Amino acid sequence: MTPDFTKVHNRFKLNNHHYNFNDLMEVAYSFVKEGEPFERALGNFLLDWLDNKDYLNVQTSGSTGTPKKLKIKKQHMVNSAIMTGDFFKLEPGDNLLSCLPSNFIAGKMMIIRAVILGLELELIRPSAFPLIDYQRKYDFCAMTPMQLKNFLKYSDNLKTIIVGGSEVPKSLIKDLQEVKANVYETFGMTETITHIAVKKLNNFKEEDVSTSYFKVLPDIKINQDKRGCLIIDAPKLSDDTIVTNDVVTLHGQNEFEWLGRYDNVINSGGIKLHPEAIESKLRKKIQEQFFIASEEDDTLGSRLILVLESDTNTLGTSIFDDLGKYEVPKKIYTLKKFIETKSGKIHRKKTLALLNTKSN
């Protein structure tokens, strides 16, 4: 029988302490009143979760558009927790580590997984370099690519790591091949209540057919619209079919390859270019933050540009050797500091606007 969102598993622990429903309400008030900023965020979320409403208002990160609030059913969040638990074979009493902020859906779902599945959750201050109890072993953890990169030498403490929030750099994937922990890249969004598909990044076995495709979780169906964008049918997570702006190539009924965002596609002289695919090729050669965009061109309509977070451009032309003929940027611009979303992602539109202001 599927657990109800009003229940707290009797094996649930938060930072080494057992809490039932009433106890959790009290500790939530305590976090809000006396806690550090990340604990206040946790307390506010718990109070929302434990109230008598059957839904939550959550906010998108704003990385692909204007941040917006969504109403999500609590039971759908429970279903998501169960799907993750089943896929990764999480059992009551397993140790869970969360170093993500509770303001956004990824951090919220780490808490709900623990509450619903009876996991022992250690929640620590979110930072680029998570500080954990290095004497303790953890069965499951979620991180951003930056956190994972900084945490690699301590990864023996972890059994399974999911990483998301932005694309995982190829240089990091290379480093992961020496890591014992099983690492998976996730694909999802606030609308799907975190991930609906995962891609294994290391420790491959013979049955791992592909290393470049995302595999959807059970009870999720995928398709494409006329633009080539992913359509997600996940009745346990959403009452509506979700039409994304993510351009994909489908491989069978349960796997897909992510190509980039439709709203980022650049049409240059009739050639459609995916910035994210170009960025993936360049990421191992450029140390600074950067992204690929476009500007108006009298001949091509739009021409490819590279925007670099730096005072000066010190990039040599050899970094473009692995790019196709049409993928090479026509110009490189520099900005001292990019604009980022609250979740730490590059806000492309606002950064480009800043670049235009600088140019004028």
Rank of each mutant, 00 (worst) to 15 (best):
A181K: 13
N182M: 04
V183L: 07
Y184L: 05
F187I: 01
F187C: 06
F187G: 00
G188L: 09
M189Y: 07
T190C: 13
T190Q: 12
I193K: 14
T194A: 15
T194C: 15
T194E: 13
T194F: 14
I196T: 07
A197C: 04
V198N: 07
V198D: 05
K199P: 12
K199N: 10
K199V: 07
K200Q: 09
K200L: 05
K200V: 02
K200R: 14
L201M: 15
L201E: 12
L201P: 14
N202S: 09
N202F: 12
N203S: 11
N203A: 06
F204H: 11
F204T: 09
F204E: 06
K205F: 03
E207S: 12
E207G: 00
V209F: 11
V209H: 11
V209L: 14
T211K: 13
T211H: 08
Y213A: 03
Y213L: 11
F214A: 05
V216C: 15
V216W: 10
P218C: 03
D219Y: 13
D219W: 03
I222S: 06
N223Y: 00
N223M: 01
D225P: 13
D225M: 07
G228I: 02
G228A: 03
C229I: 00
C229E: 02
L230H: 01
I231A: 02
I232V: 14
I232Q: 03
I232H: 04
D233L: 00
D233Q: 06
P235L: 10
P235F: 08
P235M: 07
K236Q: 15
K236N: 15
L237K: 07
S238A: 12
S238I: 05
D239H: 12
D239S: 14
D240E: 15
D240S: 13
D240F: 09
T241K: 13
T241N: 06
T241V: 15
T241E: 13
V243W: 01
T244R: 01
N245W: 00
D246C: 03
V247A: 05
V247T: 05
V247R: 10
V247Y: 00
V248W: 01
T249M: 04
L250F: 04
L250G: 03
L250V: 02
H251D: 07
H251Y: 10
G252S: 07
E255T: 08
E257K: 08
E257Q: 09
E257S: 06
W258I: 10
W258R: 04
L259E: 01
L259T: 00
L259G: 01
G260P: 14
G260R: 07
R261A: 09
Y262E: 13
Y262I: 06
N264G: 00
V265S: 08
I266L: 13
I266W: 09
S268L: 01
G269N: 03
L273C: 04
L273I: 15
H274W: 08
